[in-house]
């Protein structure tokens, strides 16, 4: 089982080794990196990336892309922050509910445009990315919601310690496990692979590609919405530029983790590793004293190499084996 996993997904093997090497070298060069407080914070950061990347993977599997995840998180995060500021006594359940419902509604909006109007997803989500960001500004009037305006329950849920790590990290783990089971054992999950792999064959098999794309966008949106609340609670502030540009890291985590941009291939394990890799770079390089610009350069290089490797493994041998070697020409 493990062997076949590694054989089928060279990205997984390579990435695992790379992450171990990275962790080792950072720990040797800078032992305080292994400080529990530092590690916990790094894991929380990574959990947010991991969750959103898993959501993005659903969309990528169906040959689409969701550029609006970070804007969705910002908008949903602002809405729940304003709700909490106005009704601090309502507790945490309505907040979770609002973030999930609102996130999936925004995702469904993307999905319906892609499904019903057949607009390419990159165009749809490039539009909604700006629309969602603009809405954050409009509903907040450009003002910040600070931690002082948020209730304790709202702020502390993500920091709840459980078996050594925070609840936020556990949420990331839970999302990943659920996504794994969903993709492996549910018909909808399997069909996401099918439509991305061969839309024409899927149509012949009676699988509705458009409907599944819409489902993928809804799932991606729901996770983005939930992450929006987590984000705002973790950093204790909601404003227009929350998670600005984060969609690129989300997509990068997927691509590094071996998810194919052309759909139909990829898995949760790879995405987790991709997110971990970016999370470690982001958290380790500053403590080692490498400038943020160099971090950008490194993650950019890694993405480019990952994509090149991906397309390399997909390209098969270029010549066919036809020749009959043993016999001589008559």
């Amino acid at each position: 089982m493990l062997k076949s996993l590694f054989l089928r997904a060279p990205a997984v093997t390579g990435l695992s080794l790379l992450i171990i090497a990275l962790l080792l070298s950072v720990s040797i060069a800078f032992p305080p990196f292994l400080d529990p407080v530092n590690l916990k914070s790094a894991f929380d950061d990574t959990a947010l990336l991991m969750m959103m990347a898993v959501g993005e993977m659903f969309v990528l599997l169906t040959r689409s892309v969701d550029l609006s995840v970070a804007a969705n998180a910002a908008l949903t995060g602002m809405v729940v922050a304003l709700f909490n500021a106005k009704y601090p006594g309502a507790g945490i359940l309505p907040v979770l509910l609002i973030s999930l419902v609102m996130g999936s509604a925004l995702g469904a909006f993307n999905g319906l445009l892609v499904w019903k109007l057949r607009i390419p997803s990159i165009v749809v989500t490039l539009g909604t990315l700006s629309v969602f960001r603009g809405l954050v500004y409009i509903i907040s009037g450009g003002a910040w919601v600070n931690s002082g305006q948020m209730s304790h329950a709202f702020l502390n849920l993500v920091r709840l310690p459980l078996l050594g790590i925070n609840l936020l990290s556990w949420a990331g783990v839970l999302v990943a496990i659920l996504a794994f089971l969903f993709l492996r054992y549910s018909l909808t999950g399997r069909n996401l692979y099918a439509v991305g792999n061969n839309p024409e064959a899927a149509a012949y098999a009676g699988i509705d590609a458009g409907r599944l794309q819409c489902v993928a966008f809804m799932l991606s949106g729901a996770i983005a919405g939930l992450s929006g609340y987590f984000w705002v609670a973790r950093f204790g502030v909601a404003y227009t530029d929350v998670a600005s540009g984060f969609e690129l890291q989300v997509i990068a985590a997927c691509v590094i983790g071996g998810v194919s941009i052309s759909g139909g291939a990829g898995g949760v394990v790879g995405v987790i590793l991709g997110a971990l890799f970016l999370g470690i770079i982001k958290n380790a390089l500053p403590v080692v004293g490498i400038s943020p610009f160099f971090q950008l350069f490194i993650s950019g290089m890694v993405i480019t190499v990952a994509v090149a490797l991906n397309s390399g493994t997909q390209r098969k041998t270029h010549g066919r084996h036809i020749l009959e070697s043993s016999k001589v020409t008559p």
Partner: peptide, 23 residues
């Protein structure tokens, strides 16, 4: 008309994957 990145078995049962308890 096959799905290249799915297993042979799943390709065969693409319209009727065997299920137990919905999984």
């Amino acid at each position: 008309v096959v799905f290249d990145d799915l297993s042979v078995a799943e390709n065969i049962f693409i319209t009727a994957r065997p299920r137990r308890h919905g999984m």
